[in-house]
């Protein structure tokens, strides 16, 4: 039987924890609302620009159009951009994204380099002895495109310089409050991929692709303007998606923690009551026993 004092202390500490988790839950709830609005606002533009990029990538003879569209015949190095959170206490959010990364690349025969966005992801990659060439932490909440444009530039530079031959982007796609899916996207070289659900959902009118584009003013002028920019934009959107996912994951995790703490506090309260009652009973027995002994003497 645990003694009443010990149980009382445990109840107190659990109640303290539940207060903290409840506060964090409230904070995350307001943050998730904000970042959700940001994601939904920019999603049409990002989706549409991705679609335009893919239309370009489907062009016949695209290899000659822009260096970012050229598929290299031998792939010697792969670069993976992994977007995670700066902070923990978000349930399985950070673990899931790293596990997903490992699942995709741990058996790769080709050397893989990583760009870590978010401190947690960086730490986990380093612990697994991955080759991290750059890290971006402390991304502000609700970043602007300028805040994260550097990541896009880095990726494009790495690709153009030939240090890497393929670039993948791994992030957490925000579906709704309870559903966030780790997602992988091939960023460079641009290729037409089939089965991108959201693009198809946006594009209800089925259309058949016609012959090659007419470019105005000139093919190089226009592609130089949009291809690098839209590539960076995909990274930006991925960061927004990941942030919304992180806040949603943290909110759910904190809600679960608060519930568990409340439940545990209730169970311990019962135990405490029992222990307390037991001590009282014991004392009563002692007194009664003492009184009996006294009366028996006389």
């Amino acid at each position: 039987m645990p003694n009443a004092r010990e149980v009382r202390l445990r109840i107190k500490s659990i109640k303290n924890i539940s207060q903290v988790t409840r506060a964090l839950q409230a904070v995350s709830a307001s943050k998730v609302r904000k970042s959700m609005a940001a994601v939904l606002q920019t999603r049409p533009y990002a989706t549409k620009s991705w679609q335009v990029l893919r239309d370009i990538a489907r062009q016949p003879g695209k290899e000659n159009l822009h260096p970012l569209l050229i598929k290299r015949s031998t792939v010697n190095n792969i670069l993976v951009v992994v977007i995670s959170g700066d902070r923990g206490l978000a349930g399985a959010y950070n673990t899931n994204i790293i596990r997903f990364t490992q699942h995709n690349f741990s058996n790769s025969p080709i050397p893989v380099h990583y760009v870590a966005v978010g401190r947690k992801g960086r730490d986990m990659l380093l612990r697994r002895r991955m080759n991290v060439i750059a890290e971006f932490s402390n991304i502000p909440a609700a970043p602007t495109f300028q805040d994260v444009a550097a990541i896009g530039h880095l990726v494009v530079d790495e690709f153009l310089s030939g240090r890497t031959d393929e670039v993948y982007l791994i992030y957490t796609d925000f579906v709704n409050m309870v559903k966030q899916i780790p997602t992988i996207k091939k960023l460079l070289p641009l290729e037409y991929q089939i089965g991108e659900e959201r693009v198809q959902a946006f594009n209800q009118n089925d259309h058949q692709i016609g012959p090659a584009y007419i470019y105005e003013p000139g093919v190089h002028a226009i592609l130089d303007q949009i291809v690098p920019r839209f590539t960076a934009l995909q990274v930006y959107q991925a960061i927004l998606e990941s942030q919304a996912s992180e806040h949603a994951a943290r909110m759910v995790a904190m809600k679960n923690a608060t519930e568990a703490a409340t439940e545990l506090a209730g169970a311990l309260q019962l135990e405490y009551n029992k222990a307390r009652q037991q001590t009282i009973t014991n004392e009563m027995l002692d007194i009664a026993g003492g009184a009996e002994a006294l009366s028996a003497e006389f």
Partner: peptide
């Protein structure tokens, strides 16, 4: 420029 249905594919700034 005016774009009518069945226009040829075009990419312009």
């Amino acid at each position: 420029m005016g774009v009518l249905p069945n226009h040829a594919p075009l990419l312009s700034t």
